[in-house]
């Protein structure tokens, strides 16, 4: 089963990369008021059962993919109802 993990800087956490992107978008003439940069991780897991797959990917996020001090994460399972 395929899962997509979205990792974002938590609200209130300074995001210099996002600030740089925001500044560049303004330079291009876009009226942006905020840009935050996160990370996407696509993983294929052996589990076929959506609940088991989600539980496993959650563990991946807690242990490696996100640092809970500064990042939040969201898991999307392919073909599974959210």
């Amino acid at each position: 089963m395929r899962a997509t993990v979205l990792v974002r800087p938590k609200p209130g956490i300074l995001d210099p990369q996002g600030q740089a992107v925001e500044g560049s978008l303004r330079q291009l003439g876009f009226g942006v008021t905020s840009a935050r940069v996160g990370r996407v991780v696509d993983v294929e897991v052996a589990a076929d059962d959506p609940d088991a797959a989600r539980a496993e990917v959650e563990q991946m996020c807690e242990q490696l993919l996100a640092n809970p001090l500064i990042e939040s994460y969201e898991i999307e399972l392919e073909g599974a109802a959210r």
Binding site: I13, P16, Q17, Q19, N67, L69, I70
Partner: peptide, 16 residues
Amino acid sequence: CEARLLPGVLRPNASR
């Protein structure tokens, strides 16, 4: 810090 042997985390410099 990542190993949680010390508190906190190191983030990109505020100055970029």
